[in-house]
Design a protein around this nucleic acid. Sequence first.
DNA 1: ACACAACTTGAGGTCGCCTCAGGATAGAGT
DNA 2: ACTCTATCCTGAGGCGACCTCAAGTTGTGT
Lengths: 189, 189
Amino acid sequence: MTESGRRPRADARRNRERLLTEADAVFRAEGTNASLESIARRAGVAIGTLYAHFPNRRALLLALLRQRNEALFERGADLLDQPGAAAALTAWVHAVIAHAAAYQGLAAMLTEGVDDEASELHQSCVQMTDIGDQLIARARAAGALRREATGADIFALMNAAAWIAEQMSVDQAGRLVALAMAGLLAPSS
Amino acid sequence: MTESGRRPRADARRNRERLLTEADAVFRAEGTNASLESIARRAGVAIGTLYAHFPNRRALLLALLRQRNEALFERGADLLDQPGAAAALTAWVHAVIAHAAAYQGLAAMLTEGVDDEASELHQSCVQMTDIGDQLIARARAAGALRREATGADIFALMNAAAWIAEQMSVDQAGRLVALAMAGLLAPSS
DNA sequence: ACACAACTTGAGGTCGCCTCAGGATAGAGT
DNA sequence: ACTCTATCCTGAGGCGACCTCAAGTTGTGT
């Protein structure tokens, strides 16, 4: 681990990569509660090595999410520049849902550690809420909103939809989102 | 155990009661993933006895829910007889959410075994969907619906809201429901 | 080639799940 | 009151997962 200062040793970097690769595969296949020991085994590494790189399951998950999150936030920034305030808002919701449906149990895992203000995860959520707020403000300015709503509402909707997608079906999640967005967006425009 | 035929032995009935009482307390305090061994311990009973009465965690949970479910279905029947189709639908959604928010993790546990067509749990879900269907049909007949929706949609909304209530807050869940119901119900009436 | 920091290893402690052979006893029958 | 047996309870023990850490191995700068 070491961290700041020198470059990590080559074997350490390789192991880290390998662990992330296998973790992604296993989490996709079995959900976020999959056995960490099986991940280590598949990566051809002892369990202690996994823990040396990632102190806990959340840390492993977080490392997997970091890149994806960056891509997501870029998407959010793009949407803020696009015309069509209502469409942009809808697109944002769908983008986040797709993001959160990667692994079975991700939604639960994510919302668990959000209270910890210091965590990187918390930052991500704040950022998502912010983007939601901005998109809403823009939609409101365009007269496209039927009722009051906040970024937190949008964030909740996205979480709920991701959860439904996991538990029931993606189709059912889509219907839920359609229902909620119908409640939010004005009929015209 | 045993089942049909004779009456269970008095000590068996006492243990069963005690187990249910403690299970309720522990599940409320720690969520549905609490240790079954701790429940047995608190009930003053060996772990084997717990498993003799309830073959698995789900069975224990189900026994806890049975009474509550009956009350819920009665409520649904009542609502079908009441005037105010739209209000009845909304009341139903809120009743189910309160029901599903009893223990942390209940929503997840419930939606896990729904596919098993033979399970009592599946029956409950079918029943809930049915009630939703009927309430919707009535609301549609009253011209109170803005868009198409099914009992399954209502069921999904309730699940999602229960989930949000667990993960975020009851208040946030309420806002989600309001959003979705606004999309479903017509402005007037 | 050497030395040392960086990294890896895997046995082992802890805990929860679940089973099942054997022991205990409630309560019916006499 | 006393059997006797179906019913019920017990808890050790196997399993798998989590996580730690003392000891061993290896990459890398000099």
